[in-house]
Computed example of a mutant assay.
Amino acid sequence: MHFQLTEEQRALRDGTRELLTGRFGREALRAAVDADAPRLDRELWRELAEAGLFALCLPEADGGVGLGLPDAVVVFEEVGRALVPGPLVATFLAAGEVPGAATGETVVTSPYNGLLPWRDAADVVRGAADGAGPLASADPLTPLHQVTGAGPVPWRAGLLYAAEQLGSAGRTLDMAVQHAREREQFGRPIGTFQAVKHLCADMLARVELARAAVYAAAVTGDPVEVAAARLLADEAAVRGARDCLQVHGGMGFTWEADVHLHLKRAWVRAELGGGARSAEELLAGAL
């Protein structure tokens, strides 16, 4: 069987990456990080909506793009790669149900795994969210509130967070390989040293395994397969960022480097996506 992306999906991926590179490249990312407080860029939000991000899976008869969940996973992989901030998953899932969500006029957030991201910036909060109190977030671009009374993470939300994790893991792999090629020690690139080679090879193996699992879960829609994809994608993102830090050495731990931003976002996404324990319990129950 053929499991490669179709020509249309590759074009969708490349177009999304081009859009995000131009609209939310490194300069915009660093400006957002260095701001006094996280702020949702409404103009960027509407541009993403105009590109069809939130209406991607809505039927064409309802003003949507008419694509499927596998296509959405391809797009959210690119979103994760670029570290785009905001409650993208919740707004995407609300399209077609909350007026204005699909067009970017309404920003929607939902509590996932006891955490409510971007509460103060959202126009609509969906789902039970009692006792919301501010919570210090590891990620400077994901403000959080802790809530009670929220139900389990919907499998589609978990899948889209896994896709974002996959994109982040792919980006840190690219960053590590590029640095290993350019940085020299003892008169040669550090990528020629066996320890660095092993780090990069392990990162690649985790990314490709996670990609296969995430893409497969998007096709089947099986909650058990989604749980497995979440675990693999979380591991690829978190361990990949840590290994990327090791490849960069001391400079990787500085505020000026972008590696720590991927690690911090990966930590937060792992919890928003449902957390490892719930995924492990679901898999154990299936076995």
Results as ranks from 00 to 15, higher is better:
Leu5Asp: 05
Leu173Cys: 01
Leu231His: 02
Arg211Val: 00
Leu283His: 08
Val238Pro: 02
Pro223Asp: 13
Ala218Asp: 05
Asp130Pro: 01
Phe186Ile: 01
Ala241Thr: 06
Glu182Gly: 06
Val147Asn: 11
Leu287Glu: 13
Gln178Phe: 13
Ala212Ile: 07
Ala101Val: 12
Gly274Asp: 08
Gln185Met: 07
Gly285Ala: 15
Ala236Asp: 01
Asp123Lys: 10
Glu256Thr: 12
His262Lys: 12
Gln146Val: 14
Leu173Pro: 01
Gly131Ala: 09
Ala51Trp: 05
Gly68Met: 15
Ala61Thr: 11
Arg10Ala: 06
Glu281His: 15
Ala162Ile: 04
Ala217Arg: 12
Arg188Asp: 06
Val107Asn: 11
Gly68Val: 13
Gln246Trp: 06
Leu44Cys: 02
Ala227Arg: 14
Val73Trp: 09
Trp267Asp: 12
Phe92Ala: 01
Tyr161Asn: 04
Ser137Asp: 04
Leu245Ala: 02
Gly104Tyr: 12
Trp255Glu: 13
Asp120Thr: 14
Ala37Asn: 01
Leu261Asp: 06
Arg42Ser: 09
Ala51Gln: 05
Leu56Lys: 10
Glu8Pro: 04
Val124Glu: 13
His145Tyr: 15
Gly273Ile: 00
Arg269Met: 07
Glu77Asn: 08
Tyr161Ala: 00
Arg13Gln: 15
Ala95Gln: 03
Thr142Ile: 15
Met203Tyr: 00
Ala37Cys: 03
Asp71Thr: 07
Val177Arg: 14
Leu44Phe: 03
Ser168Phe: 04
Glu77Lys: 06
Gly158Glu: 09
Ala286Cys: 12
Phe24Gln: 08
Gly104Ile: 05
Gly25Val: 03
Ala241Asp: 04
Gln246Gly: 00
Leu245Asp: 00
Arg211Thr: 00
Thr254Ala: 08
Gly63Ala: 11
Glu271Ile: 06
Leu93Glu: 06
Leu53Trp: 13
Thr192Cys: 15
Asp120Tyr: 13
Cys57Asp: 12
